[in-house]
Protein backbone atom coordinates (compact mmCIF):
# COMPACT_ATOMS: atom_id res chain seq x y z
CA UNK A 1 0.00 0.00 0.00
CA UNK A 2 2.95 2.33 0.64
CA UNK A 3 3.36 4.88 -2.10
CA UNK A 4 6.54 6.58 -0.89
CA UNK A 5 7.36 10.19 -1.65
CA UNK A 6 6.36 9.90 -5.30
CA UNK A 7 2.77 9.02 -4.41
CA UNK A 8 0.01 11.49 -5.28
CA UNK A 9 -2.41 11.23 -2.38
CA UNK A 10 -6.01 12.18 -3.03
CA UNK A 11 -9.25 11.74 -1.16
CA UNK A 12 -11.39 8.85 -2.30
CA UNK A 13 -14.68 9.56 -3.98
CA UNK A 14 -17.28 10.44 -1.36
CA UNK A 15 -14.70 11.54 1.21
CA UNK A 16 -14.91 15.15 2.37
CA UNK A 17 -12.31 17.08 4.35
CA UNK A 18 -13.89 20.13 5.89
CA UNK A 19 -14.04 22.34 8.95
CA UNK A 20 -16.95 21.42 11.20
CA UNK A 21 -18.29 24.63 12.74
CA UNK A 22 -20.13 22.83 15.53
CA UNK A 23 -17.13 20.81 16.65
CA UNK A 24 -14.74 23.64 15.74
CA UNK A 25 -12.48 21.02 14.23
CA UNK A 26 -11.35 19.76 10.86
CA UNK A 27 -13.01 16.47 10.03
CA UNK A 28 -12.63 13.86 7.34
CA UNK A 29 -16.04 12.46 6.56
CA UNK A 30 -16.09 9.12 4.77
CA UNK A 31 -18.95 6.70 4.12
CA UNK A 32 -20.12 5.42 7.52
CA UNK A 33 -17.15 6.81 9.41
CA UNK A 34 -15.61 10.01 10.58
CA UNK A 35 -11.91 10.73 11.00
CA UNK A 36 -10.83 13.37 13.50
CA UNK A 37 -7.24 14.45 12.92
CA UNK A 38 -5.21 16.27 15.55
CA UNK A 39 -3.39 19.49 14.65
CA UNK A 40 -0.53 17.75 12.90
CA UNK A 41 -2.84 15.41 11.03
CA UNK A 42 -4.90 18.39 9.94
CA UNK A 43 -1.84 20.16 8.55
CA UNK A 44 -1.04 17.07 6.48
CA UNK A 45 -4.59 16.69 5.17
CA UNK A 46 -4.82 20.38 4.22
CA UNK A 47 -2.06 19.70 1.70
CA UNK A 48 -3.75 16.69 0.09
CA UNK A 49 -5.11 17.94 -3.23
CA UNK A 50 -4.41 15.13 -5.67
CA UNK A 51 -1.73 17.21 -7.38
CA UNK A 52 0.92 17.53 -4.69
CA UNK A 53 3.15 14.50 -4.18
CA UNK A 54 3.81 13.06 -0.74
CA UNK A 55 7.34 14.43 -1.07
CA UNK A 56 6.04 17.93 -1.78
CA UNK A 57 3.75 17.70 1.24
CA UNK A 58 6.72 16.70 3.39
CA UNK A 59 8.80 19.59 2.00
CA UNK A 60 6.04 22.07 2.81
CA UNK A 61 5.70 20.82 6.37
CA UNK A 62 9.47 20.62 6.89
CA UNK A 63 9.72 24.30 5.97
CA UNK A 64 7.15 25.26 8.60
CA UNK A 65 7.70 22.87 11.48
CA UNK A 66 10.65 22.64 13.79
CA UNK A 67 11.77 19.06 13.13
CA UNK A 68 14.20 17.21 10.85
CA UNK A 69 12.75 16.42 7.43
CA UNK A 70 13.28 12.67 7.85
CA UNK A 71 11.23 12.66 11.06
CA UNK A 72 8.39 14.51 9.34
CA UNK A 73 8.69 12.24 6.28
CA UNK A 74 8.34 9.11 8.39
CA UNK A 75 5.21 10.41 10.11
CA UNK A 76 3.61 11.81 6.95
CA UNK A 77 4.14 8.63 4.94
CA UNK A 78 2.84 6.50 7.82
CA UNK A 79 -0.25 8.71 8.12
CA UNK A 80 -0.97 8.63 4.39
CA UNK A 81 -0.49 4.86 4.28
CA UNK A 82 -2.76 4.44 7.28
CA UNK A 83 -5.54 6.56 5.77
CA UNK A 84 -5.20 4.71 2.48
CA UNK A 85 -5.53 1.40 4.32
CA UNK A 86 -8.62 2.75 6.08
CA UNK A 87 -10.20 3.74 2.78
CA UNK A 88 -10.02 7.53 3.02
CA UNK A 89 -7.21 8.13 0.51
CA UNK A 90 -5.73 6.69 -2.63
CA UNK A 91 -2.00 6.93 -3.20
Amino acid sequence: MSGGEDALPRFRRGVRFRFDEIRQQWTLLAPEKLFLPDETGTEILKLVDGERSAGAIIDDLAARFDAPRDVIATDVLATLDDLAARGALTL
Binding site: L28, K33, L34, F35, P37, T40, G41, F65, T79, D82
Partner: peptide, 13 residues
Protein backbone atom coordinates in the same frame (compact mmCIF):
# COMPACT_ATOMS: atom_id res chain seq x y z
CA UNK B 1 5.45 24.77 15.53
CA UNK B 2 7.06 21.75 17.12
CA UNK B 3 6.29 18.55 15.26
CA UNK B 4 4.07 16.00 16.97
CA UNK B 5 3.40 12.56 15.58
CA UNK B 6 -0.01 12.81 13.90
CA UNK B 7 -2.96 11.08 15.47
CA UNK B 8 -6.20 10.50 13.60
CA UNK B 9 -9.14 9.08 15.51
CA UNK B 10 -11.67 7.04 13.54
CA UNK B 11 -15.28 7.01 14.67
CA UNK B 12 -17.99 4.81 13.23
CA UNK B 13 -20.95 7.09 12.56
Amino acid sequence: MSWKTPKIVEIAL
